[in-house]
Simulated scan of single mutants.
Amino acid sequence: MWFLIAVQLFVIVLLFLIGWAIRNMKTYWMISGFENRSKEEQQQLIQNGLPQKIGSLLMTTAVGMVVLLPLHFTSFKYAIEVQFGFMIVFLLGGLIYLSKYEIPKKRKRSYLINSLLFVVIIGFISATMFLGYQDHKLIPKNDSFEITGMYGDEWNYQDIKRVELMEEMPEVTWKQNGFGLSTMAKGYFKVKEYGSSLLFIHKNSSPYLCIELKNKKIFVNGHDSKQTRSWYEQLRKKIK
């Protein structure tokens, strides 16, 4: 948790400093595409207040994230999702609103581009979260077992070297290629003493099933302990 909070604090400080520099120090070159405008367009945008308002938008976003930060110290499970969701929606929505301060001949185009960007990004994130939060299952078959859902696959029993039921999940040190949020982790993560591993984990829901294959380590658990122990027993019978 502390690593995620540190990342969020870094993002908050970065947003605030960039916004402050744009609004108060007039570092308008930090705004994407501003330096490529003609001098006449740059002056018109400054007169309209667009660069200054972009700086204020970044600073306000940072303040909003600070306000939401205490959620991490409550029982609320989705603090990370809420905080970064706020950041994305507030920033993208703010850019759509600020299109009104564009120069008249480019205002309609700015509305269109920012609106399209909003729809694409929000749609992509929503689809990813929907798929990521879909529950996974371990399905034993005659010669193999399958884990369903995102990052799921099928593996042969003959490739299993060891199956272990663990009451505590080893420390996960780094995400390599996966989906890791407050309540779930799926994909490839670095696990202390195990190296690169494939995770299908409901966080804080012991026990955890460790399946060591010839070329891969898998950690998986169900939505409750009964389901996880059932998977463990089914695999043990298959590899005897």
Rank of each mutant, 00 (worst) to 15 (best):
E193A: 05
G187Q: 03
G187F: 03
S206M: 12
Y208F: 10
H223Q: 15
S197G: 12
S196R: 15
L209R: 02
E212G: 09
V220C: 09
L199H: 03
S206K: 14
S206P: 13
F189A: 04
I211S: 03
N215V: 08
K190V: 11
G187H: 05
H223N: 15
L198E: 07
A185L: 13
P207S: 05
I211R: 00
F200D: 07
E212M: 12
S197L: 09
I218Q: 02
K217F: 04
K186Y: 00
A185P: 10
G195E: 11
K216P: 09
G222K: 03
K192M: 13
H202I: 08
L198V: 00
V220F: 00
K214T: 14
F219H: 05
N215H: 08
S206F: 02
L213F: 01
V191R: 01
K216S: 08
V220E: 02
K217W: 02
F219A: 09
Y194K: 11
K214W: 08
K217C: 11
S196V: 12
L213E: 07
L198C: 01
P207R: 01
S205A: 12
S205M: 15
G195D: 12
F200K: 01
N221D: 07
S206V: 10
E193N: 13
V220G: 00
C210A: 15
F219M: 14
I201H: 00
S196Y: 07
F189E: 06
V191T: 09
F189D: 02
Y188D: 13
P207T: 04
N204S: 13
L198G: 05
S197T: 12
G195F: 00
I201G: 06
L213Y: 00
N215A: 09
F200V: 07
F219W: 10
C210T: 08
L213V: 04
G187C: 07
P207I: 04
L199D: 06
Y194S: 09
Y188A: 11
F219I: 07
V220W: 00
S197R: 01
V220T: 03
I211L: 04
K190A: 15
L198P: 06
Y188R: 08
I218N: 01
Y208P: 05
K186R: 11
F200P: 03
I201A: 04
H223V: 15
K190R: 13
K203H: 14
I201Q: 01
I211D: 04
K217T: 15
I201P: 06
K214D: 13
K190G: 13
K192A: 13
K192P: 11
E212A: 12
L198W: 02
S196D: 15
G195Y: 09
K214C: 07
L198Q: 05
I218L: 06
L199A: 06
C210W: 03
K186N: 09
K216G: 01
L198D: 00
F219N: 05
I218G: 01
V220I: 14
A185N: 12
C210L: 13
E212C: 11
K190P: 10
K217E: 09
G195P: 12
Y188C: 10
G222L: 04
Y194Q: 15
E193I: 08
F189S: 01
Y208D: 05
K190Q: 14
Y188N: 14
K192N: 10
G222A: 03
I211H: 00
V191G: 02
N204I: 06
G187L: 03
F200G: 04
Y208K: 03
Y194C: 11
L213R: 00
S197E: 04
A185F: 08
E193Q: 07
S206Q: 10
F200W: 00
L209I: 09
